[in-house]
Each structure stands twice: as structure tokens, then as C-alpha cells.
Design a protein around this nucleic acid. Structure first.
Lengths: 161, 161
DNA sequence: ATAAATATTTCGCAATGCGTAATATTCGCA
DNA sequence: TGCGAATATTACGCATTGCGAAATATTTAT
């Protein structure tokens, strides 16, 4: 109970670092979160259809079109029609897109190394063990929660004028 | 080296959960990141000036005005002039604002409990120890890096038309 | 051959973030 | 005390992003 509160406070105090990385990492991100995760997804899959993209970033198709429009316009993503089915658009990372993702990975990796350099090999293994344990937990119990029609915390903007 | 890559992949695979919480948490967030961190900041400090807010979320003052405008309009934040110095605007959370933050903390806490319930006491202590170790690390080594005029990863949108 | 289904784009709009200019108040100095 | 400089914040105009509805092109089913 008290441990959870401590961890919650720590989480809230530090999660800001993820949302505002420019404040502590030497990195200048000019992409929206949708654009960023789009490129990460393409990097992982190599070739992605718009429908797959929508399934991954979970936004309307028209939004996905806008996202890809911008990435194509700025040279990070290329777009072509599938020859198998001409309704399907295939999107890939350009050289510039690959470079951006590689640079991003290098930058994050650099900071991870600094963070981890004082840990012993045993501590690292332990940490990875905990990480995978948590990841498995996320895969299973959260899905169970989603399948029960539980009380839903709904926060909506209330226009008072 | 190989450990860092494993952790990097794990990080990239899972960081999406933070940026798209609605996909796995029963929570409907209608606030921009600036609005959210504004409320978290006010919650921690109770009373905040606009200048303090700008210092925390690190955005232009005009942007801060817009953010507070919206939060005030929607009833989560109140705004008043300091009697000591009438240039100064004091912003506080309303009852609705406090309720939102408390509900948010409860929700995150609920998920943290699920995530942590399978961890042994030793693992929890280790995780907390690592967390504080990392936090100290971030305070010191990152600051050292910032003070050296190192190679800066600058990613900018390139308009190709 | 045609209607239905599928994949994606276009269009119009609201909301958000930001640079510049403006406004109100306080401070410093002659 | 008065006035210019400094401070704190808002107003204004604009570019960008996300999204719902409609439109377009292609494929599938009958």
C-alpha cells in the first residue's frame, strides 16, 4: 500500500521526462506523437498498410492519411500502391526515415547506458527479469480487466460558458 | 552492450502505453499534455503563478495563457490576481480539478497495484532502490552532459515540395 | 453486370501551440 | 513626485494537427 504510493509519486514526478524529452535529452523532436509512433511501427514492420497503421496507433483513417501525408511531404516515409490490390497503400521508411529512427535509438541508448553504467551485471539481470515479469503481467491481467465491464473513469471536458 | 539493446527494445515496445493510455487503461483523457501537467503541477504546489507554470512546463507565456484559459473555462482551474502585486495571476485547482487529479491518481494506483502484486517484497525494494538510483543518476550525469557542448541530435522537419 | 464491401483520400472544421504586440502594474531613479 | 524601464500577463493572428463525414477507386459477391 505505502509502497504503491511511493511508486506512484515517483512515477508522477518523473513521467514528465518522457513527455518533454527536450528538457533533459539533447534531442529536438519535431514530430507529433502519432508521427513518431508511425515511424517506429514502420521501422519494426518494414512495410505497413494504412489499415495496419490505424490498428497500431488507433486513430481514425482520415487522421492516418494526414499523418502519412506529412511524413511523405517531409521525406521520412514513402507511399506506393500495392500491385496485388490497388486499393492498398504500402508505406515504408525512406533513407531519411531510417536515419532518424537509428539516430533516435542511438540517443536513447546513450542515455540508457549512462543510467545503467553503475548497475552490476546481476542487478541488470534482475531488472530485466522484473521487466519481463511486468510485461507478462500487462499482457494478461490488463486484458482481463478490459473484458469485465467495470466502472469506467470517464473524464470529459465540460464547457462552462 | 547487448543488455542495453534488450532494454532499449523493451522500452520502445512499451513506451507507447504511456502515450496512448486509453488503449489499455479504462480512462478517457481529454486534456493535452500541457493541460495535464499544468494540473499536476498546481496539485503539487496548491497555488501557482503563470511565471512558475511557464518555468515548469517550459512553454511560451502566451501558450500558458491559452492553457489556463481552457482549464478555467472548463472548470478545473481558478484564476485570481494577487493582492500583493496585481500583475501576478494566481491559479489554483477547483474542486473539479482536485477530483480529476485524485481520480487520476486512484486509477494509476489501481493499475500499479495489479502490476506489482506478483512481485516479491525483495523485487519491490529492489525496484524502488533502482528507481531512486536512476533518479539520482539523472540529476547528476545528465547535468554534466548538458554542460558540455556536445554533439546535438537535431531533427527538424524538412519541407520538400 | 451490378450492388455491396473494402481501402483510402478529400474536405471542412475545431482545437492547440506559438510569436508578436498590447495592456496593466510595479520598480528605480532623477 | 513623475516618468521611463522592467515585469507579469493577455490579446491577436496564424500555422499545424486531429477528426467526422463525404467522396473516390478498387475488389468481392451474387
Amino acid at each position: 500500500m505505502n509502497d504503491v504510493d511511493n511508486i506512484l509519486d515517483f512515477f508522477i514526478d518523473n513521467v514528465k521526462k518522457l513527455f518533454f524529452p527536450e528538457e533533459w535529452i539533447k534531442i529536438d523532436l519535431k514530430f507529433s506523437k502519432y508521427e513518431l509512433f508511425t515511424m517506429l511501427f514502420i521501422d519494426r514492420k518494414s512495410e505497413v498498410t494504412m489499415t495496419e497503421l490505424v490498428g497500431y496507433i488507433n486513430c481514425p483513417m482520415s487522421t492516418a492519411t494526414g499523418i502519412v501525408d506529412r511524413l511523405v511531404r517531409n521525406g521520412y516515409v514513402s507511399r506506393s500502391r500495392s500491385e496485388t490490390d490497388r486499393r492498398i497503400v504500402v508505406i515504408k521508411l525512406t533513407d531519411a526515415g531510417c536515419k532518424f529512427i537509428n539516430d533516435l535509438r542511438d540517443t536513447i541508448s546513450k542515455y540508457l547506458k549512462i543510467i545503467l553504467e553503475d548497475l552490476t551485471g546481476e542487478e541488470k539481470q534482475f531488472l530485466i527479469g522484473i521487466a519481463f515479469k511486468i510485461m507478462n503481467k500487462l499482457q494478461t491481467d490488463i486484458n482481463i480487466m478490459e473484458n469485465t465491464d467495470e466502472d469506467k473513469t470517464v473524464i470529459k471536458k465540460i464547457d462552462i460558458e
